[in-house]
């Protein structure tokens, strides 16, 4: 099976690429337990930076704020993005389709500084014309995050819808279910993993956004990335290493869980397939 893929050089590139991707993260994790403030000096094992992190009230407030924004952004983006994904994958041509798919594609690549600036100018103009939004803060950050996250969710959902088996939907329709019912009871459960993946993606994107939030936030709504950024600009602080380690652990656990669920589902699908004699 290895055939040409067994060529040594590409294989070496794969492993070096992976080392390149993971080495900085491993270093962060290791040095988060370093007693010394210096990156290159190992001062012995210690959890003092974790204590310092937890005691940093500003950081904790910002983290809590970011988690809230991420939760609500991901939820709204999953709703909007799922609708958009259905339109992209299932509707043929309709009037305004080119513009619609452009509105989905462009946010994926549009530089953050442009999205941030343009949304801020929109909010400023709106508040002059109609008096809303009165202040900038969590609400405006939420709107901004929903906007770009729903584009990502739409892509996840539509690519899932594109390569899945439509025979179950057709069966439901043949048995007399209408479109809405078919969607709610057949399609939705089938794309549930993509919904979860989309939600998680939106959650991490929102949690991670520095640039757009910096433009549209108000004075009292510093998010976690903004807080991290301002302390990083002052130089390397081991507290950030501790924070990074916690984030990496969180993502690691989530991915292991997701992988386990996915694996089980695949096993089950394989069993079902072999049972049906396929």
């Amino acid at each position: 099976m290895s055939g040409r893929g067994g060529a040594a050089l590409p294989r070496l590139m794969l492993w070096s690429g992976l080392i390149f991707l993971y080495a900085p993260m491993v270093i962060l994790v290791v040095y988060s337990f370093n007693e010394s403030r210096l990156v290159t000096v190992w001062g012995g094992f210690s959890t003092r930076w974790y204590r310092a992190l937890v005691e940093d009230q500003q950081m904790m407030n910002a983290a809590w704020r970011s988690l809230q924004i991420a939760f609500f952004s991901a939820t709204a983006a999953t709703l909007l993005g799922t609708l958009a994904g259905i339109v992209m994958a299932r509707w043929g041509r309709f009037r305004g389709r080119t513009l619609f798919s452009g509105l989905i594609t462009a946010p994926l690549v549009m530089p953050d500084v442009i999205i941030g600036l343009s949304l801020l100018l929109l909010f400023v103009s709106l508040s002059r014309w109609i008096g809303w939004p009165e202040t900038r803060g969590m609400l405006t950050i939420w709107i901004a995050h929903v906007t770009f996250c729903s584009a990502y969710v739409a892509v996840v959902i539509s690519s899932r819808l594109r390569d899945f088996d439509r025979s179950l939907e057709e069966a439901a329709m043949d048995l007399g279910a209408d479109r809405l019912r078919t969607f709610l009871w057949v399609t939705l459960p089938l794309i549930a993993p993509a919904l979860i993946a989309g939600w998680l993606l939106a959650f991490t994107l929102s949690l991670d956004d520095l640039v757009i939030a910096s433009f549209v936030s108000g004075p009292a709504s510093t998010t976690l990335p903004m807080q991290v950024f301002s302390s990083v600009r002052l130089g390397v602080t081991p507290k950030i290493n501790a924070l990074a380690t916690l984030l990496i652990a969180l993502v690691g656990i989530a991915v292991l869980l997701a992988g386990w669920v996915l694996h089980r589902e695949q096993q089950r699908a394989r069993v079902a397939r072999s049972a049906s004699g396929d």
């Binding site: 290159t40 991670d208 390397v236 993502v251």
Partner: peptide, 27 residues
């Protein structure tokens, strides 16, 4: 999964990690 995994952790923090590696008295 191994390729995607790093991008699920903070972009900002992953860039920050390189400061410690690349600076003059870095790793």
């Amino acid at each position: 999964m191994l390729i995607i995994l790093p991008s699920w952790t903070s972009f900002l923090i992953r860039i920050y990690a390189w400061i410690g590696i690349l600076k003059n008295e870095g790793l």
